[in-house]
């Protein structure tokens, strides 16, 4: 499972790096944002209201966003742990940190619960600012670590403080696993309701589970797997790290529509 996921992650990461390198060589005008589904959400408002696209948004963004909604309904937030290159980089940094510290470093549960809601604030701010102050421009680019990092800190809206944001997220991911995804990513906030309903989810078999709790420690999102009958948590990305480490075969199983 882990090998399969790592191959898929590496392919998408290689894809954005290839776009970055080709762009630097002047072989393409595409950037990582050409394939970002979040732009599809931002594009919906002018598309529906004025029947036009603004800034660099276009029909591919909308189509990718619709596909993302469908993917999340089927497989929860698998986009984050199988596709998104920023998720991949943070996950690998988090794993390095886990090796160094011997475990994931996590904020206290009460703090974590509060911070989780920051994503909604970011989402409202981004959408609100885009359609007022930024006048339909993708002004969020300057604050978006995905754009900043995968344009090689050279994107045309990468400002001086963008460098700090990009590097800051990478450094922070060493100390708090998946820090951007968990606390700040507006796309993650949008996916929450679909993820909660996601049809493909983990189920714990209490008859086989020994309550060892190893799965809880392995989950980069701090989801309490060992006490759940079914993992319906909105932040579960179906990374299956919990299944990988579970010593009891069959104690954790993926189910589709409960089967």
């Amino acid at each position: 499972m882990r090998v399969l996921r790592t191959i898929v992650q590496a392919l998408f990461l290689a894809g954005v790096v290839a776009i970055l390198v080709r762009g630097a060589m002047g072989l393409t005008t595409s950037t990582c944002e050409t394939y970002c589904p979040f732009a599809g959400l931002v594009a919906l408002y002018p598309l529906l209201r004025y029947h036009t696209y603004t800034c660099a948004m276009n029909e591919l963004h909308v189509a990718l966003f619709v596909s993302l909604v469908a993917l999340t309904l089927i497989t929860k937030k698998s986009f984050c742990s199988w596709v998104c290159p920023l998720g991949t980089v943070q996950e690998w940094i988090g794993k390095a940190s886990r090796k160094v510290f011997g475990r994931y470093v996590r904020p206290p549960v009460a703090v974590d619960r509060i911070l989780l809601n920051l994503r909604y604030v970011v989402l409202v701010l981004v959408l609100g600012l885009t359609w007022t102050v930024w006048q339909g421009d993708l002004g969020f680019r300057a604050y978006d670590p995905f754009y900043i990092i995968f344009t090689g800190f050279q994107g045309h809206e990468t400002l001086w403080f963008s460098i700090f944001i990009g590097i800051g997220v990478l450094v922070a991911a060493f100390f708090v696993p998946m820090v951007w995804c968990r606390y700040l990513c507006p796309l993650s906030a949008v996916m929450d309701p679909m993820s909660r309903a996601g049809f493909l989810r983990l189920r714990r078999n209490p008859g086989l589970c020994t309550d060892c709790g190893i799965c809880d420690e392995a989950c980069p999102h701090g989801i309490p797997v060992a006490t759940a009958d079914e993992v319906s948590a909105r932040n579960c990305t179906n990374c299956l790290e919990c299944v990988e480490v579970c010593p009891e075969k069959g104690a954790l199983e993926l189910t589709l529509f409960g089967k």
Binding site: L4, V8, L71, I74, T75, F79, W82, N238, L256
Partner: peptide
């Protein structure tokens, strides 16, 4: 069932 994930990703792209 894990294969559903990459299959769904590919199909939806």
């Amino acid at each position: 069932k894990v294969i559903i994930i990459p299959a769904a990703v590919l199909l939806l792209i």
